[in-house]
């Protein structure tokens, strides 16, 4: 997504190691999030435990607990690992898109695909998929995750200030962006399927 590059891997389903048997007949989702030290514009050493990666992990778990059909995976856990290789804005949206495709290619049952994108507001102008420099100047940023093949919104998060009258136009803009991403994802999956059937 722009200059952002994210890699996602999915491990599982495997035996749930959690001892507390609170929800035995449902699966659980675990996440790992790692930003490489060379990824951001300002070089940092380790950001495995910082506030932002924790927030993104909570976001991922919240989203995928509603999307993945966990009833079909009793007593097992799915591990989603995210590695950020290059960070240049719209990081959370790129993370969600990568994780969705990784889940599909792992064969995890899901209710539907989700595509996410970010919209920023800079001086009454709406920008789709802002870069890192653009987010510094933005007065507000909106992250949405749209359920494909429907108008449902699976995820919405806003930071900064967004005036009420521009919110609807920002949402419409985000919806259009998500539809483009959906098309791209489905095309990527089709080519992936053809490459698989070539092996078969």
């Amino acid at each position: 997504m722009g200059g952002t590059e994210v890699r996602a891997t999915v491990t599982g389903p495997r035996q749930d190691h959690q001892k507390s048997g609170t929800n035995k007949d449902r699966g659980t989702i675990e996440t790992g999030f790692f930003i490489s030290p060379f990824a951001p514009v300002d070089r940092k050493n380790s950001s495995r435990f910082d506030k932002r990666s924790k927030e993104t992990q909570a976001l991922l778990i919240h989203l995928f607990e509603s999307i993945v059909i966990l009833d079909q995976l009793p007593r097992s856990s799915i591990q989603i690992n995210i590695t950020v290789i290059d960070s240049d804005g719209s990081l959370q949206a790129a993370t969600i898109n990568a994780a969705v495709l990784a889940l599909v290619s792992a064969g995890i049952p899901m209710k539907s695909l989700v595509s996410a994108c970010e919209v920023s507001l800079i001086d009454d102008e709406i920008l789709l998929d802002p870069t890192q420099d653009e987010t510094y100047f933005a007065s507000g940023t909106l992250l949405t995750g749209h359920v494909t093949h429907s108008n449902d919104i699976a995820l919405m998060e806003s930071t900064g200030q967004i005036p009420h009258d521009t919110l609807t136009s920002m949402l419409a803009q985000a919806h259009q962006g998500c539809e483009q991403i959906t098309d791209f994802m489905e095309k990527a999956l089709q080519t992936y399927a053809e490459s698989l059937s070539g092996v078969r």
Binding site: T148, H149, M185, A193, S197
Partner: peptide
Amino acid sequence: MSSVCVVPGQHVGEISIYEAGAGTR
């Protein structure tokens, strides 16, 4: 390829004609 490959969430049929099997909801 284009007619049979589906992604999660894609509409595949109606209950009046089909019965939902594995991999569908």
